[in-house]
């Protein structure tokens, strides 16, 4: 699995993502600046890390979604390539239309920086195969706009087609519709989620709860 990690101005979790990828994939990810117009040849997986791209101006992820590299990312996804968006990366790919819905200001208005528990809704995807179905794991979250929303018809379709990847299983602190923490594209190759599995991939970080995500991808 060859990964390319996108870098937008204001992104700050790319090092965490590099570490997680290096450890599980056993090879270095490419780092791709947002002004590039093409992904490196042989890219299997595009990762959009967390942070505050373009200072969250206008809306979280709105500016980054218009960056030159995003045209290549859309083409990659259309060809069936893998895409992973975490936190701001999730916001960017919803703004870019790769996943439905949007992330609103947290219902309680506060920035949430704490651990949450996530439930694995399905384990027959390239992102979740190393977990048991229904498994719960700890994941740090750090966001002000993680309140997932979509119209009722879209939410029903996501549920009906099994495209909810992760749900908040302890408390739904940000007010997300139906406790949704992460969703998949219909071909199950694009995943977006708010919490940060990449921040728990080594005992030195206090746990390895998030490592199955990267191990699953490595095995795909």
């Amino acid at each position: 699995m060859q990964a390319a990690i996108l870098l937008f101005p204001g992104i700050n979790r790319e090092r965490d993502m590099i570490l997680a990828v290096r450890q599980s994939f056993g090879r270095e990810p490419a780092i791709v600046w947002h002004k590039e117009t093409e992904l490196p040849t042989g890219t299997d997986l595009v990762i959009l890390p967390g942070g505050f791209s373009f200072g969250d101006y206008l809306r979280c992820g709105a500016m980054a979604a218009q960056s030159p590299i995003m045209r290549a990312v859309k083409a990659h996804a259309e060809k069936g390539g893998y895409v992973l968006g975490v936190c701001n990366g999730f916001q960017i790919i919803t703004e870019a239309g790769l996943l439905p819905g949007a992330l609103l200001r947290n219902a309680g208005l506060r920035f949430l920086s704490m651990d949450t528990m996530l439930k694995v809704e399905r384990n027959d995807t390239v992102f979740t195969s190393k977990w048991a179905k229904g498994a719960e794991f700890r994941a740090p979250m750090a966001h002000g706009d993680g309140n997932y929303t979509a119209d009722e018809a879209t939410l029903d379709r996501l549920e009906g087609e099994g495209l909810v990847a992760f749900r908040y299983s302890d408390l739904n602190r940000n007010g997300s519709a139906r406790s949704i923490a992460g969703i998949l594209s219909p071909n199950l190759r694009v995943l977006g989620l708010m919490p940060h599995p990449e921040n728990l991939v080594d005992p030195l970080m206090g746990g390895t709860d998030g490592k199955p995500l990267f191990d699953s991808l490595a095995a795909a």
Partner: peptide
């Protein structure tokens, strides 16, 4: 439509 508003929300 393209940038200033996110018509989803």
């Amino acid at each position: 439509r393209k940038l200033l508003a996110n018509t989803v929300i």
